[in-house]
Design a protein around this nucleic acid. Structure first.
Lengths: 345, 345
DNA sequence: AGCAACAGTGCACACGTGTACGGTAACACG
DNA sequence: CGTGTTACCGTACACGTGTGCACTGTTGCT
């Protein structure tokens, strides 16, 4: 069990170790950091190491940053509007773990759609992060480094959006799974399928949306959209209003699980049964979907791998900013559960 | 719209501004930082400010930390086991916001129950945080600074546990609300009420647990406990097993909402109706409870206030480490919903 | 013995910022 | 004109670490 050190007892520095061993602080620094370089004899290296442990030496990150020009900090860009969604809590947690493995400390940087610039000042500039992982940032982050051909600080884009040139990206291919999902619905005899999303105007090139449209078009079926606000109560209300006005569709294809859960409530409020009357499908693969009254069919995303690879890409680019751009594609999985079960007669 | 600065174009420092204005960097530093001190004439202060903006100056945190001895970093202690629970995602988000308001950057430090020391090394020591906010840490964090009368680095304890001497704390009083909840259940005619929790052995002094016991004892009713693992599937299975063995109780009092949701599924699996057969109550007040098929009665915690006050306490202690210990108590609210509705005949 | 080669180490500076202290004008007053 | 006062500002050092270069001592070779 280690204890928090007492700051009244002045923190141990390289100099303290040096004085104790009657060597220079340079020697101590080399002994501790340059693990492989044969600049230091093995015997003194061992002595330094031992004393460092004895005295409880902890390197001072601020000083090290100043000397090396690296902070060891990585910022995670997230839309603050998306935080209540537990999908993003997962991303944050997994990313923390992956970063920690590589000795990076993650700074979560919540970006509001309304005040795009303020948080940017706070974290990216003020803390001089070594790199940025931008999750689902879309074109918004690109606008931040307009003018320069490449982003000045290493950026890795993650998630479904990947329209960013000049940036490493870890892409989750939802389109294939979404296509399967649509065929699955149609195979069950559903024809009036409504696409439910917020931000409808910005979805044109979004893979889920594209898959939805393509499959319907190929099958000669009509498309219909329901644009909803971000909060669950609002989604619930919107779905109710829609159904009351237009009658129940045969299926709802929801942009994410959070919406699907809210939509489910809206349907229940009207006494509509899932999947008997309306089939329901979400996207993300959050845990709650499994614990819904009617377990939810969803498109599960491989978040752990995404975070792992994103950190790897970032580390490599920090090491060598001139290396060629990398892109990884991870496939999402269609998970079929009861919410798209067969229709009862 | 501000852009990420280009690091190839060397970052602007105080010296650059000084050279441009033909003054010393000390003057620039004073002009920018000491807002009130009359050491600098208003005219030069204005000139410095303007040029700083023009050149896009951003202070270097590493250098500042080195000079001032403060990092501006605050660590948030969280049990990593608790992260999947969306209650903790809320805590994390709210705390971020509250910290940002006070110019602190939050480092989330996930502590595993199994490897208590490893993360401690990583964040608290390595990053020289100015303070720590320990949420639901319990005695675990106390063990970290054993020997010293006070923790060497400012610590604020938050949440329900508050048995930490020598530490500022923001206490959420769940006991009163839990007592109300129990009386509510008994008032509805429920007698066999089972307490569901993980970590049963460690709950003796826990307010929810105490309230449960006290009220039952006062009413001359029997108590019964169900000790469950942490994951939702496990809770679901445990509840099923319990009911199959002992028959359904009249109510389940769950240690948190996450368990309540899982317990609800377990009951459904057996065809048991809530609230008709079994009443169900949780604790935390997470959003999902409202969106359960049967909206869940719960004990809602005032998280936003808690985070706000915690950051305030921390800031004050950082300013003056010798000030007297502060404690704030926030009341939790019993939110009655359908899951404890009346019993149908 | 003389010299080269080399391993191991210390010296000195740099990173960017904050601040105690000393210095320099300008100005007022005797 | 000399002295004291005030208002500003610059000089110099400190924070803790990393690293190029110079330096020392030892070894090996002729």
């Amino acid at each position: 069990m280690n204890t928090i050190e007492n700051p009244n007892a002045k923190r141990i520095t390289l100099k303290d170790i040096a004085k104790r061993l009657d060597v220079s602080h340079a020697t101590v620094s080399r002994a501790l950091n340059r693990v492989e370089d044969p600049l230091i004899s093995e015997s003194t290296r061992a002595r330094v190491r031992q004393v460092a442990v004895e005295m409880g030496y902890r390197p001072n990150h601020a000083a090290r940053s100043l000397a090396t020009g690296r902070t060891g900090l990585v910022a995670l860009w997230l839309w603050s509007e998306a935080v209540p969604n537990s999908y993003h809590a997962n991303v944050s947690q997994q990313m923390h773990a992956a970063a920690q493995l590589r000795q990076y400390q993650l700074l979560v940087n919540l970006v509001s759609r309304k005040t795009l610039d303020a948080p940017f000042n706070n974290v990216f500039d003020a803390w001089h992060v070594d790199g940025i992982i931008a999750h689902e940032a879309g074109p918004a982050i690109q606008a931040q480094f307009q003018g320069t051909p490449r982003p000045p600080v290493p950026v890795v884009a993650t998630g479904v959006y990947h329209l960013l040139p000049g940036v490493d990206r870890v892409y989750i291919d939802v389109q294939a799974a979404a296509q399967l999902a649509m065929k699955h619905l149609i195979g069950l005899g559903r024809r009036r399928i409504v696409y439910v999303t917020d931000d409808l105007a910005h979805r044109h090139s979004e893979p889920r949306y594209v898959a939805y449209n393509n499959v319907l078009q190929d099958s000669g079926l009509p498309s219909a959209y329901l644009d909803v606000p971000k909060s669950r109560p609002a989604v619930r209300a919107c779905v109710k209003a829609y159904v009351e006005k237009n009658g129940p569709p045969e299926a709802l294809f929801c942009h994410n699980d959070d919406m699907a859960i809210a939509a489910y409530r809206g349907l229940c409020d009207l006494g509509i049964r899932v999947p008997d009357d309306v089939a329901l499908i979400g996207c993300d693969g959050i845990e709650d979907t499994e614990y819904l009254e009617v377990p939810l069919t969803t498109i599960a995303q491989p978040l752990t791998e995404m975070c792992e690879i994103a950190c790897q890409f970032l580390e490599q680019r920090i090491e060598d900013p001139t290396r060629p751009i990398q892109e990884a594609t991870l496939m999402a999985n269609l998970v079929i559960r009861s919410s798209t079960g067969g229709r009862s007669p």
